[in-house]
Simulated assay, not measured.
Amino acid sequence: MEALEIQRAHNRAMDRMRPVTLTRDVMKHALGSCMIECGDTKVLCAATIEEGVPAWRRNAHAGWVSAEYAMLPASTNYRTRRELGARKGRSMEIERLIGRSLRSVVNLKALGEYTVTVDCDVLQADGGTRTASITGAWVALHDALMQWVQAGKIPRLPLIGQVAAVSVGVVDGASLLDLDYSEDSRAEVDMNVVGTNEGEFVEIQGTGERISFNRARLNQLLDLAEGGLAHLLALQNEITAFCDEDK
């Protein structure tokens, strides 16, 4: 496949991510919170824990982890209306993705009959809000569960791994890692990849927006995604020391 070069923001190469920052403990009343910044995309993630589980989950002797996602009105270059009455299909799809991703690395039996909700609010959007939400949500979830352990609510951390997510795509014929809005809005192929610290995929969402793609291109995009995931997982571990914890 022919190698192409295009000019990108932050003067980054095709296989390089935007600058990523994870800031913990940004909210006083949340058990766990994290502000994630990926270039100009900023998402605030906050985790809370409540006793009990949804009605359909009762008698399962296991907990539940879910997420809610929203974009603040001024998060884009035009005002986004608040979803007060009817939820947008996009928001519901994204929060289900976040919830599935988080549950993939939680031992729900070990959690016990508690419900963890991670709220992901987009403060500023410049592409990759769903992938940033997953990456930041894991940090908030980790910290909330650690608080629950320290409070004696559960005997040990029920996390069995890390999870992060990154976007890849084809823009002007070039395969790129971590698309910003200017790239995502004109991508020929758009893909979101969720993966764990064990090197396994949780979910791959890939669409040929303007062109179809073959197996060679898919392999190339997944290789790019794996590099981005490794970077994000290392940043998570750097601030949480998850890999050094006695689980």
Rank of each mutant, 00 (worst) to 15 (best):
L84P: 00
E50V: 14
G127R: 04
T80R: 15
W148Y: 07
S75G: 08
L111R: 01
R103C: 11
R100K: 15
H61T: 07
N77D: 15
C120D: 12
S91K: 02
V53S: 02
T80C: 13
L145H: 06
Y78L: 08
A151T: 00
A70Y: 02
V65C: 11
T129F: 06
T131F: 04
Y114Q: 12
T115M: 13
W138T: 02
A132D: 11
D143K: 13
A110W: 01
S133F: 06
W56D: 12
R87H: 13
M71T: 01
W148G: 03
G127A: 12
W64P: 09
R130V: 05
I94A: 13
W64Q: 09
V116N: 01
E50I: 13
K88G: 14
H142R: 03
M71F: 01
W148A: 14
C120E: 10
D119N: 13
L123C: 06
G152C: 06
G85M: 05
W138E: 01
M146G: 03
V116Q: 08
E83I: 05
V149E: 07
A140S: 15
W64M: 10
S75W: 00
A70K: 00
L72H: 07
L102D: 04
C120Q: 08
W138I: 02
I98R: 02
V149G: 05
S75D: 02
D119S: 14
I134L: 06
L108F: 08
R130W: 08
T135H: 05
T80S: 10
G63Q: 00
R81L: 12
G99T: 03
E93S: 11
P54H: 07
T117P: 12
A55G: 11
S91E: 11
M71I: 09
D126H: 14
S66F: 10
G89C: 05
T80I: 15
T117K: 14
K109T: 12
S104L: 04
N59C: 04
I94C: 11
H61W: 09
E93D: 12
A70E: 00
Q147G: 01
I94H: 06
Q124Y: 07
E68V: 08
E68W: 10
G127T: 03
S101I: 02
R100P: 07
A55F: 10
W56T: 10
I98F: 01
R90I: 01
L72R: 02
K109D: 14
G85N: 13
T117M: 14
Q147M: 11
G112Q: 08
N59Y: 12
M146P: 01
V122T: 10
M92P: 00
G136E: 11
G63F: 00
L97I: 14
V149Y: 05
A151Q: 15
E95F: 04
S91C: 14
G127L: 11
P54A: 04
R100E: 07
W138S: 00
V106W: 01
T131Y: 04
A125R: 00
E50L: 05
R90G: 03
T129G: 11
R103L: 07
W56P: 00
V139S: 13
P73Y: 02
V118K: 10
T135M: 05
M146W: 11
A74W: 12
R82L: 08
L84D: 15
V122H: 06
G85A: 13
D119G: 09
I134N: 06
L84N: 14
Q124I: 01
S91I: 03
N107H: 10
G85V: 04
Y114F: 15
E50M: 13
G136M: 10
A62Y: 08
R81Y: 04
V105F: 02
G52S: 12
E113T: 14
R103Y: 07
L145W: 07
